[in-house]
Nucleic acid binder design. Structure first.
Lengths: 173, 173
DNA sequence: GGTGAAAACGTTACGAG
DNA sequence: CTCGTAACGTTTTCACC
């Protein structure tokens, strides 16, 4: 019985609607606006871009269907919800074993206090951006992530004194 | 002539509607949902939280007016718009002079390729998360940011091999 | 905090270029 | 294949309970 994953041959088309999509200037204009405020009325976008609402609508649907827009999120102010501290961690793993990597990444993705996790070149393996309510919360987190049954060789903590710029916006056009 | 910054006395009230607001579990539930998808219909949120749409509506307005929700953004997929590379930079400034700091921060906020900028404790002064179209684009950026008329003592580049987790979501409740 | 009517908004079908 | 117009359905908003 065939239990493996069905792989695509070279000639197959990758049909997960993630193929690169051509974007014209008007698409980019739409993205520029929505990157700053998703709640902008389509009518207003239409005015600004010089298209009808229907056209903007269609483009928007295409942008979302093709995962050019990967998500639409409300950005919450950390201090307003008691997350008063931000840290930046450099993490070095014990081995470059693939299984450990997979386990570690999964752990990061499942931990809400880890906002961001980057696998990088250089001395460290991973760089994490982490929020915590207070020092105690942070200590508990490092305990969970790095001591209890872990393959972390060492880690280095930087305290964020100021979140000078925090965004996911991209340069467009 | 008075040229300094007008400081608030201890007894002044900071009247920018950014004062801490009490959040109950239902507010947190609303935030949890919107953090993942701002486009969730209010009716659906109401169902999930166990309130009427009007109530959710009012809470939402309060959350936005009080900057608990600081913005609503569309997250764009970097690769889809030609931003194929991500870097993490450690930057050390020449002096801890306040004016230099202010100038540097402003530069970071005005540069679209700098997505994030954190002022941190430790060896480095700043940590940047940067996107670029390619190596050439990245080179141009470092040139602009760090060489032309700058107070940067040194910087270190890490190439991001994988954006394992990239979000601005916070742990709530 | 809930209800419901009015208004605003997003969506889709259609015909045109 | 993409546009705009216009009618349609849904969602949000708001005065009132």
């Amino acid at each position: 019985m065939f239990q493996g994953v069905r792989l695509m041959s070279n000639t197959d088309t990758c049909n997960d609607s993630r193929r690169t999509m051509e974007l014209d200037n008007q698409d980019l204009e739409i993205l520029k606006i929505l990157q700053v405020d998703v709640r902008t009325a389509i009518e207003r976008i239409a005015d600004q871009v010089g298209l009808s609402t229907a056209s903007v609508q269609r483009r928007l649907k295409r942008l979302r269907d093709n995962h050019v827009i990967s998500s639409d999120v409300a950005v919450v102010e950390p201090k307003a919800v008691g997350q008063t501290m931000t840290f930046l961690l450099h993490v070095e793993l014990d081995r470059d074993n693939l299984d450990f990597l997979v386990v570690f990444k999964k752990k990061m993705r499942n931990e809400p206090r880890v906002q961001q996790c980057y696998y990088v070149t250089g001395e460290s393996d991973f760089i994490l951006i982490v929020t915590a309510k207070d020092m105690e919360d942070f200590d508990a987190l490092t305990q969970e992530l790095f001591f209890d049954d872990s393959n972390v060789r060492r880690y280095k903590t930087s305290v964020v004194m100021e979140r000078t710029k925090v965004s996911l916006a991209l340069p467009l056009g």
